[in-house]
Amino acid sequence: MPVDPSLLGRTYPPSRPYEVGREKIREFADALGDDHPAYRDPEAAKALGYPDVLAPLTFPIVFALDAAMAVLRDLGIDLARVVHGDQTFRYARPLRPGDRLLTTVEVTGVKALAGNDVLTVECVSATEEGEHVVTSVCTLVHRGAE
């Protein structure tokens, strides 16, 4: 099913805010096997110049991928046929506990490639006060029927 090219530029407003939690950061760092103290010990983070512990680089995927998937659900695409093609994060600053982030989703690329639909989805996450924190860009490859 070719994806409609008019999808380009479509935006999805944020749903409820995602609140970054101290223990979620610890759990995520544990799952990566990353023992850097700045993810767990506020004093270690302060020594690096941050107000509190920081989240690992790929932590935003916890809320960004789900936000991007909203596009696929909207299109009625079978998620089992979707492959994560690439992923980029651009950080204004590290995420920290207590951040309440609203993520706005925009479809910034739609193309057909070798029978697959390739969607580029940009997720811009800002605090409720409007401070931009991170932009997550992913491409999702929807594999065409065999």
Binding site: Y50, L54, L57, T58, D86, Q87, F89, R93, P94
Partner: peptide, 14 residues
């Protein structure tokens, strides 16, 4: 780098 917050951008292709 010693400081995970020093990374301003990180991207990969799978």
């Amino acid at each position: 780098a010693g400081d995970p917050g020093a990374v301003t951008e990180y991207g990969v292709r799978f």
